[in-house]
Deep mutational scan, measured.
Amino acid sequence: RPRTRITDDQLRVLRQYFDINNSPSEEQIKEMADKSGLPQKVIKHWFRNTLFKERQ
């Protein structure tokens, strides 16, 4: 599967949610997917990777 490119607008949506809650529920992930147009799987990976980077 090719790598998903996240646009600036999509990144802005993800960052807004991450700043509020870095561990979103399934419902919140679905909401983000609707707003950003990204697949839920991509959003889950983005949150996991971003949380890991923040903790380092």
Rank of each mutant, 00 (worst) to 15 (best):
S36D: 01
Q10M: 04
K44I: 09
M32I: 06
W46Y: 02
Q40W: 10
E26F: 10
S25Q: 05
K30F: 04
D34V: 10
N21W: 03
R5Q: 11
E26C: 13
N21K: 11
E31Q: 02
Q16K: 14
Q10H: 13
Q16D: 11
L14M: 14
K35A: 04
S25H: 02
Q28V: 10
D9E: 13
P39N: 05
E26I: 14
R3P: 08
K41N: 10
M32G: 00
L11E: 15
R5G: 11
R12T: 06
K35P: 00
G37P: 00
L11Q: 12
H45P: 03
K44G: 08
K35W: 03
M32D: 02
Q40Y: 14
N22G: 07
D8M: 09
S36F: 09
I43M: 01
K35C: 03
L51M: 14
R1F: 03
R48N: 15
Q56G: 03
I20D: 09
V42N: 07
A33R: 07
S23C: 14
F52P: 10
V42S: 08
T50G: 06
F52W: 07
I6F: 10
N22W: 06
R55A: 08
Y17T: 03
R55P: 03
F18K: 11
S23G: 04
L14T: 00
M32S: 00
E54K: 03
N22Q: 13
K30Y: 04
K35I: 04
N22E: 10
R15C: 05
H45Q: 14
A33E: 13
P24W: 02
H45E: 15
Q56V: 01
Q28G: 06
T50D: 04
V42I: 09
I20N: 12
Q40H: 13
E27L: 09
R3A: 13
R1T: 04
R12H: 08
Q16G: 12
E54G: 04
Q56L: 01
Q16I: 02
T7E: 08
K35F: 04
T7C: 03
Q10L: 02
Q28L: 06
L51G: 10
R55M: 09
D8C: 14
F18Y: 13
P2H: 12
T7S: 14
W46R: 01
F52G: 14
T4D: 13
K44D: 09
R1I: 02
I20G: 11
E54M: 09
L38F: 01
S23W: 05
E31P: 00
K53C: 04
T7K: 04
D9W: 07
I29P: 00
R5C: 14
I43K: 00
F47E: 01
G37Y: 03
R15T: 11
M32T: 01
K53R: 11
I20M: 13
Q10N: 02
D34K: 13
E31W: 03
D9C: 15
D8P: 15
K35V: 04
M32H: 01
E26Q: 15
H45D: 15
V42K: 10
D8F: 06
P2A: 08
E31R: 04
R3F: 04
K53D: 06
K53Q: 14
P24Q: 01
F52M: 14
I29W: 03
L14E: 00
P39K: 15
S36I: 14
S36T: 15
T4L: 08
E26N: 09
I20S: 11
K44S: 05
L14F: 10
D19A: 15
R3M: 15
E27C: 11
K35Y: 03
Q40A: 14
A33F: 03
S23E: 08
V13H: 06
T7V: 06
Q10E: 03
Q28H: 10
K53F: 06
S23M: 11
I29T: 08
T4N: 15
R12F: 06
R5D: 15
M32R: 00
A33T: 08
S36K: 01
E54V: 07
P39H: 09
K53Y: 15
D19E: 13
T4P: 07
V13Y: 11
N21I: 04
D19K: 14
R12L: 09
R1S: 03
G37E: 07
Q40N: 14
K53A: 13
K30P: 01
T50A: 08
S25T: 12
I43N: 00
E26L: 09
S25Y: 03
S23R: 09
W46I: 08
R48H: 10
R15F: 07
K53I: 08
R55F: 07
V13I: 14
P39T: 11
R12K: 14
L51Y: 12
T4W: 00
I43A: 02
K30A: 12
K53E: 12
K41Q: 14
I43P: 00
Y17L: 08
S25M: 02
A33S: 10
R55E: 07
D34F: 12
K30C: 05
K53N: 11
Q56H: 02
D9K: 13
P2M: 15
R5V: 15
M32Y: 04
N21D: 09
D9V: 07
R12P: 02
H45C: 06
N49T: 11
P2S: 15
P2T: 15
E54Y: 04
Q28M: 07
E27M: 11
Q28P: 00
F18L: 08
K41W: 03
R48M: 10
V42A: 09
E27F: 04
I43F: 00
L51T: 10
L51K: 15
I43R: 00
S23A: 11
R12W: 02
W46S: 00
E54R: 09
D8H: 13
L38P: 00
F18R: 10
P2K: 15
P39V: 08
N21L: 05
P39M: 05
R3I: 14
L51I: 05
D34N: 14
D34A: 14
L38A: 03
R15M: 11
F52I: 04
R5N: 15
I29F: 07
V42D: 14
H45G: 12
V13R: 05
P24C: 02
E27D: 14
I6L: 15
